[in-house]
Design a protein around this nucleic acid. Structure first.
Lengths: 186, 186
DNA sequence: ATAATAATAAACAAGGAGTTCAAAAACTAA
DNA sequence: TTAGTTTTTGAACTCCTTGTTTATTATTAT
């Protein structure tokens, strides 16, 4: 890819990432991003339709990063290596920690919805084959499933938002399984 | 209160309520509200600072309504009447059902955050004296508490958003207690 | 080197936000 | 009813943001 393009895209993402740590999503204008990225107005609009597309790009980056890393683990580690469901959650949390400042800003604004719906989708995929419905035969399946997904989502949210830096990703995963152990036992 | 004022406020709320059933929060302009409410521009701005304040007013109305109704129950019913925690939840859900159209529109937009944070606060109050931490002594209290609150919040959200009109408020409350029974047993 | 592509500044139109003001209308209290 | 107060109204206005266009300059890949 043309070096100019990747440079522009990179600086826009970085600019947004900086801005969202400082102020609310709704208060960030396209002009702010342009100024922070130090690019021309027309340049921005030749790459992104609007502010929302920048967030989409950033969120996609995060989940692509996580997915590719998951593949790495599956390809390069031998089979004795534990890489079960719990490990994949922990692993995702480590990735979130890297982008913590940006994510906190995003989650405290309306832009957070974009991240949350991506997270929900990602978790929904991961959960399909991992939860047990046997203990909850009185409840519609989609409600149990929604509970499994959103419960982890809210735990992650709480972990990121509150200044819970002392809590390790492993702990978060443990707490999740403790809070919902019936979902993971036959 | 001056009849003109209450009339204006009422028509603004009704206007917003109509509009949010039709289109996304971000696509509703102050001018839309003014037109739908059929009032003068200056009149709107003499009562509300912006669009967000209208949502705040609507959300406050809902929870005030619920709280005052709770008091009614406590005052007028005799002590043999069951009005425990579960009943108060069901009761809240019946109120939400009344404003369903508006709430669905709100929750599918960014404006939903205002409702959700009010709901979270409301639930947090209600939960203070009702959940049992004994089964979760390995987990920080605030995390268990957050789980209790957000789990119900997400269940309500799912109930409202999906076309789950067939599910009754009593069922929703039941599902909640089934999904989290450890939170309510010593 | 050159042909293609990207970046740029500047100007532009369209539209929303929020304010101001004087005149008209509706209210209250006596 | 009247007189005085408060609210509503429409219109005009400023400011800001969005998104587009254009002609020019700079960078790139080969």
């Amino acid at each position: 890819m043309d070096r100019r393009i990747s440079k522009t895209i990179k600086s826009v993402k970085k600019a947004f990432s900086n801005l969202i740590s400082e102020k609310a999503y709704k208060d960030i204008t396209v002009q702010d991003i342009i100024d922070e990225a130090d690019i021309g107005r027309a340049t921005f609009y030749s790459h992104y339709k609007n502010k929302e597309e920048v967030v989409n790009a950033l969120v996609n980056d995060i989940f692509e990063h996580i997915l590719s890393h998951n593949l790495d683990i599956e390809n390069h580690h031998d089979f004795s290596q534990k890489h079960n469901f719990s490990h994949r959650i922990e692993h995702m949390l480590y990735h979130f920690e890297e982008d913590k400042d940006m994510l906190i800003g995003l989650l405290n604004s309306e832009g957070g919805e974009i991240f949350l719906s991506a997270l929900k989708k990602h978790l929904a995929d991961a959960f399909k084959t991992n939860i047990s419905l046997s203990k909850f035969d009185k409840i519609p399946e989609n409600i149990v499933f929604n509970h499994a997904v959103t419960s982890l989502m809210q735990l992650i949210l709480f972990w990121l938002k509150e200044d819970n830096c002392c809590i390790k990703p492993e702990d978060v995963a443990d707490y999740y399984f403790l809070l919902n152990k019936d979902l993971f036992t036959e």
